[in-house]
Write a protein that binds this DNA or RNA. Structure first.
Lengths: 356, 356
DNA sequence: CGTTCCAAGTAACGCGCGTTACCAATCCAG
DNA sequence: CTGGATTGGTAACGCGCGTTACTTGGAACG
């Protein structure tokens, strides 16, 4: 790679950007002609010859359009705002990635603003408002509001000024369209997988029973059992904190409660962190996975699921897909199309690894 | 493709568009006066009375400045571009968060562009270039280029047009300033901690020995041992793949190699994933942590370190701090200040948990 | 009373671009 | 040869705002 000896100088010279006017002069045409060519107008008539002359000039001068000026003149920015809690977020990054990729494909830009601030003491509601305010100042054409765990949220008032789509959460006021994981189908597929492997006595390590994830996943489990002619035994459902320790304790309780012959042969852990704790409880008792006890998780937290030994079979939350779908929905909304549905459910695929 | 079926409606939805002119009329002053008040010009003379009248008008009309127009007129955007690989990134999110928070404090905006694309087949170098190009079209005032693991990188040529700072990586061509973790000090502090706990026979589970992280951390370990009058025993250093399985195998090798009395009483795992595997190897042998064997990790991958049982004592990579420092450095550069140093090292703090 | 000076504000230009209206030349049909 | 329809462009306005130069009414000053 040939090093330019004075990159700084080059930068300093380039500081004053090349404008469309420069291109026009260089090509010996009007600025309008350049604009027409660059924006590929259909109805404008520019001869093939001047068209190439203009393109050559663009190339020669290294012209780069000024997105801000374009936005100002055309009254559209091609920007979407994404508001999310970054701090606690093992998941947020996946939503961002999904949205970002889709936005990129659609030639749109994503402005990401934090809805929480590390240094914020007290209610950070004000900061969230400020974030949205900032995004609106940038004249974003739409807003994505993402949560890191499935729940109902109240979206600040100012979000109403622009089309808004919720991701991994839903509007507690029931106004805005949202995109959430299909927890029920996920719970169903997890238990179906265990049934298919021959397990009929399945312990369930539950989350806090009131959150949407727990409700849906448990309901799905019940459905799967019902299809197999089984009933969900309330005694086999133990709730715990959504941590490895919580999972450990719940698993201990469920494993020690029964004599060996009645012991469940499989555990459905409603998230991977609890599965991590359950692994310890199982191993401590000299039992093997999946030989003695099969384990299935939920969430597909890569760092856990893919690195546990044996690797954890789990149901994935479709964050990337939700992010992408959010952008698509927003694109449809800003284009004036009617909303597809108040709430779109996205499938949670089963990821087979080695714990069943 | 999808043309807006109801353009009128879309226009109606479009932002209210109250401009400075509206504010001016409402307050009975000139637009210039409004501009002066809003930008808090020192040398301009506006009476306190009209100043409040203008502010009231702003409030009453719900005026929101147009950032794009402001950028166009003032020739500065208050935007920085952040280019990073989002896809594989358990870490990227922390860099983003650190940078984002700092940018927010400085009243600047971060435009995040992906340097890798999921759907990109073949060399994605072109996409990275395209991303930077897009950022430059937005007239970002500076560029942050972040990697998800410490390494040398080649930054695309176009990044030279604007001040650029590298985060968690360094310029292989040695031109651009960078911010990287102080791996050596991190390795030192880890081993010091083990020495302080009374361990003198310390096994080291190494990464691929050529990457900067491995080199630095091992060198730090050597220094710490030297200070204690000890030497690093090459036999106690085993390399493995940077995964839980790799850590498991390496730990097995090191634990089984010696009779009990010569067995190391502590393991320094050069990353947390390997520590996760080492845990399994230790537990399998009926040994306890930290009773029989102390373990210390590196990276502080929250999902692992905080949820392993016992929780893993580890050295943290200062991603957030690096992100913040990156923004600060960029701010200094764009303000025309001389660069502080070609390479800034950021401390890796020890996080005490329960495995030592 | 004439001059100077200053507070308080305004008119007007330009940032880079999209867009509409308009113009000049050519090309046929009648 | 005239007139309408194309082809190939251009002039000029406006997007919302920052900024510079300029104006004005009145107070201070000599």
């Amino acid at each position: 790679m040939a090093k330019s000896t004075t990159p700084n100088k080059a930068a300093a010279v380039r500081q004053r950007g090349v404008t469309m006017n420069d291109v026009a002069k260089h090509a010996g045409v009007s600025r309008t002609a350049v604009s027409f060519v660059l924006s590929n107008r259909e109805n404008a008539s520019i001869s093939e010859e001047t068209r190439t002359r203009i393109n050559d000039a663009v190339q020669a001068l290294g012209y780069r359009p000024n997105a801000g000026a374009r936005a100002l003149a055309s009254q559209r920015s091609d920007w979407y705002g994404l508001v999310t809690e970054i701090v606690t977020a093992p998941f947020a990054v996946d939503i961002i990635k999904g949205a970002q990729d889709q936005a990129w494909l659609d030639r749109r830009f994503l402005l990401i603003a934090p809805s929480d601030q590390a240094d914020a003491v007290g209610p950070n509601k004000g900061l969230e408002d400020a974030a949205i305010e900032k995004l609106l100042e940038q004249r974003v054409e739409g807003l994505l509001y993402a949560a890191t765990f499935h729940r109902g949220v109240h979206v600040p008032q100012s979000a109403n000024e622009v089309p808004t789509v919720l991701i991994n959460c839903f509007d507690a006021d029931g106004k805005l369209p949202s995109i959430v994981p299909d927890e029920r189908a996920g719970g169903r597929v997890a238990v179906e997988r265990l049934l298919q492997a021959g397990h009929t006595r399945i312990g369930i390590i539950n989350l806090d029973p009131v959150i949407p994830a727990a409700v849906g996943r448990l309901e799905g489990a019940r459905e799967a059992l019902a299809v197999a002619g089984l009933e969900l035994d309330p005694e086999l459902v133990v709730s715990g904190y959504a941590t490895a320790d919580g999972g450990y304790e719940a698993a201990c309780e469920i494993l020690d409660r029964y004599p060996e012959k009645d012991r469940p042969t499989a555990l459905f852990c409603l998230n991977d962190r609890m599965a991590m704790g359950a692994y310890d409880a199982i191993k401590e008792r000299g039992l093997t996975i999946p030989g003695d006890i099969a384990v299935i998780g939920f969430d597909n937290q890569e760092l856990i699921a893919a690195y546990l030994r044996p690797k954890l079979t789990t149901v994935a939350l479709p964050f990337q897909k939700m992010g992408a779908l959010g952008v698509q929905t927003l694109a449809a909304l800003t284009a004036g199309q009617p909303i597809i549905a108040d709430q779109q459910l996205v499938d949670c695929p089963l990821l087979e690894r080695s714990s069943v």
